[in-house]
Structure formats: structure tokens, C-alpha cells
Design a protein around this nucleic acid. Sequence first.
DNA 1: ATCGGCGTTAACCTTTCATTAATATTCGAT
DNA 2: ATCGAATATTAATGAAAGGTTAACGCCGAT
Lengths: 218, 218
Amino acid sequence: MKVAMIEDDIELAEILSEYLKKYGIDVTNFDDPYVAISAMRIEDFDALILDLTLPEMDGLDILKKIREFSDIPVIISSARSDLSDKVIGLELGADDYLPKPYDPKELEARLKAITRRRTKPPKEPDFKIYKNRREIHFKSKPLHLTPAEYEVLGYLIEHQNQPVDREELLYACENLSENASEKTIDVIISRIRQKIGDEPKNPRYIQSVRGIGYKFVP
Amino acid sequence: MKVAMIEDDIELAEILSEYLKKYGIDVTNFDDPYVAISAMRIEDFDALILDLTLPEMDGLDILKKIREFSDIPVIISSARSDLSDKVIGLELGADDYLPKPYDPKELEARLKAITRRRTKPPKEPDFKIYKNRREIHFKSKPLHLTPAEYEVLGYLIEHQNQPVDREELLYACENLSENASEKTIDVIISRIRQKIGDEPKNPRYIQSVRGIGYKFVP
DNA sequence: ATCGGCGTTAACCTTTCATTAATATTCGAT
DNA sequence: ATCGAATATTAATGAAAGGTTAACGCCGAT
């Protein structure tokens, strides 16, 4: 297991690294948060141990920055026992909170726990297609879709993550005329977005791919 | 939503309470299991979050005691990642198991999921088919149906929730000619709807599926 | 023969929804 | 920033689908 650590207390960092190495946990410490962030963009770590009490930069800001590009498990460690930090940290997606000083053994246990948990995120998808019912459910509730909307959304979902161009949709959908204008698609997409509450500015599910068409991201 | 929690780590309890309150979940924590049990005999909670690793009393025993008088949904949370605990807990009627440490977001999601699941009281169906008598009863009263109406309604009921297209009905019903106009179906549906008091605008039981036909929803 | 029940069709009205056009907004390259 | 193109949104329209009623005609029972 390869773990990143952001800790400015070099001595503490070394103690922990030594200890964790004995349990097969490889720790790379960064005393400079910015270096850490750059490194994490390139290299893949299994977890991050983040010290909140850093000079120069606030630990929570670092977490926020990291969350912009990674959902790596994060354990926050801090000498501040400030409750609000704890709350904010967990909200930003930290997985655990460890007040200093702590027993290395505990850190090891939590690392193990977190990475174990990571391997089983069984979450219900937001969209489900019930072909035999001719229904699409969104967050467990059926959507009221017109035939064309049903077909378009269904097709996008089945081709999730890949951009589908408008012409393809016109041909794929029974309820769309093949020689209809491609603008028709735009109108239908707009109505679907309204029904699922997707804001076209920064849409969560149906994203427009400029020059091509649309793609569904689950 | 009002939730009870049995957790001896007061600090963790407070974090979770704060977090869940923002999502409209009211948490009452008990650090003493016995107090909790007494309270739950009196007050009505929507769910219980139970920490297994308690002093004095084993969490599983508590669950057993609670099950003697309540079938409240229970989420077990535990630092023990012992599998047998999980099994026993779920056998005793816990609805979910959440290993510590966990993300409050996940707890929230599971709470919502569990209480949503809870709302399904099994009830007597409004329609019953008596094949031998060739009758269909609606709310315990027999309907006066013509042979074709009986067949169509019966077929729809037997294929409940799935849209049945008109052609299929023409073929399935002895009393309908296979080469009759599909409009015939519409007329028969209209008559059935009148007999069961289903308003075609926003129908409760027989819904039209545009481009296909009709579907019966129980 | 005649009658009544019932499936069928025709005619007519209402509703739905894909489509187009028109307008506003956003995006991305320069 | 600026411009042109792509996308978003809204309203209008018209054709198709569904809903309803009345009348027709087939067929078995009287």
C-alpha cells in the first residue's frame, strides 16, 4: 500500500513512516503541500494523511484543492481539536479524523479500514431503465417522459460516457423522423433536463459535447 | 425525521448530529444504552443508529432487547470489523451495517434508504379475477362486463405494469376479431373505464401509453 | 320474424407532442 | 474583449393519437 502524507513536522513524519513500513505501508511525506498536490496529480496513492496545522496554507484548503481532481481516501490529523474543523473536514470528503497525538497503531488500523471500505462502494445508480414497463426511474421515482424523450434518454444512458451525435439519435429513435432537423434533439434534451433538474450550465447527467451532440454520465 | 443513536463517543455523536441536522434529520444521542431503551419504549423514532462497541453491555444484546418490543429500522455501526458480528447483527434484524470509520454522507444516504423502504404496507388488491366464474371483482363487488371487456381487462391485469399494444389484445381475446380495427380497443377501454370510474384524464388503473396501447397499474 | 346484446365502425372532438421558427445565451478561438 | 458559431429556451403549429358517442349489423334467444 502506498500512502501520501502532508506533514511539516519532519521528525513525526519519519517516525510514522518507519512504523508503517513494518506493516507494508509505504509512506511518502511532503512537507510542502504544493509539491504534494503536484505529485498526487501524477502518481497514484492509496490514501492521504493530511496534517491540518500547516504553515503557509490551511489544511482544509488543500483538501478542497485535492478534491477537485481526486477522490482519494483522506485521513485528517490535527493538533487542533477544533470541532468545526472536524465537521468541515468530513464534509469535504475526508474519511476520518485523528486528533494528535495519536498512537501509530491506530493510524495503521484506520488506514486498513479505509482502504478496505473503498473496495466496496455499492451504490444504487440514479437512473434505471425498465424496458418492459417502458419507464425510466430517476432516483427511484418514475419520470413522466414522452415517447421521444424516453427513447432519447434511454439511448444516451445505454451509451453512457460516450458522446452520441444528433443524427445517430434521429436514426435510433422510432419516434423521431429521420429527416427532422437536428435542432429537434436540442429541444428534447432541454425538456429532459428540466424533468431531471439538470442545469444545462454545468449539467450533472446530460452533458453537451460541442460539435457532436450529447453524452450521459452516470 | 427523528433518529435515536446509541454511541458512547460523545464527540463523534455531536459531529454526526450536527451534520444530519442540516438534512432535516433530528438525532437524539444516548450514551447509556439502558436510558436509550427506556426512551424508545416511550418515544417514537424513525430509526436507530447503534454502536456495537460499548462498555458495560454488548451492542448485540441491546439490539436483542429492543427487538422484543420494536421493529424499528436499525443501522449497526462498529469499529469491530468482525464478520460474525455483522452476521449476527443482520440476523437479529438490523437493516444495515456500517463499519467505522464512515463518512456522515454515507450514513445519511443509508438512513434515507432504510426509511424509504419501510413505507409499503401490503394491502388487498382492488381487482380480483375469478376465472371459473368468469368474473372480475372491483373493490369486492362484481363488475358487469361484456365478454370482450372481461377478456381485455383480465389480460391487462395479468400483465400489470407493462404496456400492452392493441394488436396483442386483438390476438389474445377470443371475442375480438383479429382483423378488427385497433380503434375497437379504444372503445372497449373507454367502456371499461366508465364501469370502474376511471377518469381517462389522469386514470388511476388503466393508463394509456402513447404509441403503444394501455397498461394496468394495480 | 323480432328483439336485445354486443362487437365494430364511423364520425367528431380533444389532447398530446414532435417539429419548426424565433430568440437568447454560451462557448471558444482569435 | 470580440465575433461567429453552437447550444438553450420558448412559443406556436399542425398532424397524429386518444376519447367518446352514435349507429350499424351480426347472431343467438325468444
